[in-house]
């Protein structure tokens, strides 16, 4: 399994000279399985350049797994080149709602006054799926989804292949459900998704003092991200969903703080960067 980060910024695209090292595109991660199949995690603005590359590679069928429908995780979908190609088939998976289908919820962003073209006019063949409660198989990978602490209906994902496991929790505030370190694993939000994974990609939007002013907004402090990784026994932690107000220098300090908290340097937590590639065994 190979991961490539196409967008790791939280909340709002943040282009500019001060964010060039970590990148300004919002959430999008490409997961390439051993057979070459592609799973796309979230459709933030990072999905636009990914779409161009997928078309260049001739990939015409893939899955998009949405954690939730906040704009920073959806706004790139309208500019995802493969959707505008009639030869493409896309399966879009996302969180359930008792009120409306996933298609209807996504279609709102393809409608006036937000966008000039209706979802019905998109040429690609799109199939929408609510994520199942039980794990399911995509191109030989075992995929699990579960609701996690974040405002609105939001899921995290666990992807497992024969040799490796990866958990994707880009927007997550587990501390809102009580102190992380004191809880049994089954009482930790997303605990079964992240337990023992080779790589945990987790929200770490804030420094600790910033988080104190933003409790309940759905995101984690760097300290909570490190505590969470420890509580679920994740082998490696990749910090994600960078605060738009944090320029590259601030993010360097956030990474240093994470390593200080984890008590590790060499294999300690790292911050996701646009273009980063992670190979899992």
């Amino acid at each position: 399994m190979r991961l490539r980060i196409w967008g790791c910024r939280g909340s709002l695209p943040t282009p500019g000279a001060e964010t060039v090292r970590y990148g300004g595109n919002t959430s999008c991660v490409e997961v390439t399985l051993e057979d070459g199949a592609v799973l796309v995690l979230d459709a933030g603005t990072g999905i636009r350049p990914l779409g161009s590359e997928l078309l260049e590679r001739g990939i015409r069928r893939f899955h998009v797994l949405l954690t939730h429908l906040h704009l920073d995780h959806l706004e790139g979908l309208r500019f995802f080149g493969p959707l505008w190609d009639a030869d493409v088939s896309v399966d879009i998976w996302g969180p359930p709602s008792p009120v409306s289908s996933l298609r209807d919820r996504v279609a709102r962003s393809f409608s006036p006054p937000l966008f000039p073209v209706d979802l019905r006019e998109v040429p690609a063949r799109i199939t929408f799926h609510d994520v199942p409660r039980e794990p399911w198989s995509l191109n030989g990978a075992r995929v699990s989804a579960d609701l996690v602490v974040h405002p609105g209906s939001t899921v995290g994902y666990r992807i497992e292949t024969a040799g490796s496991s990866f958990a994707y929790l880009p927007d997550h505030e587990p501390a809102l459900a009580g102190a992380i370190a004191d809880r049994p694993r089954d009482w930790i939000s997303g605990g079964s998704l992240a337990e023992g994974v080779d790589l945990l990609l987790h929200d770490a939007q804030y420094f600790e003092d910033e988080y104190e002013q933003r409790v309940g907004w759905g995101h984690s402090s760097v300290a909570d991200a490190v505590a969470y990784a420890d509580a679920v026994s994740a082998r490696r932690l990749l910090l994600f969903h960078h605060e738009p107000l944090h320029a590259d220098g601030s993010l360097d300090r956030l990474e240093a703080r994470a390593r200080e908290l984890a008590g590790r340097n060499g294999d300690g937590p790292t911050l996701a960067r646009e273009g980063m590639v992670v190979e899992l065994p």
């Binding site: 579960d146 609701l147 996690v148 602490v149 809102l176 459900a177 009580g178 049994p184 694993r185 089954d186 009482w187 930790i188 939000s189 605990g191 079964s192």
Partner: peptide
């Protein structure tokens, strides 16, 4: 058996504990 609690139960527990 250890069984992952549904998110709603996790949040309900935190509410109840207060």
């Amino acid at each position: 058996a250890v069984r992952q609690k549904h998110l709603v139960l996790i949040l309900a527990r935190e509410f109840a504990s207060n």
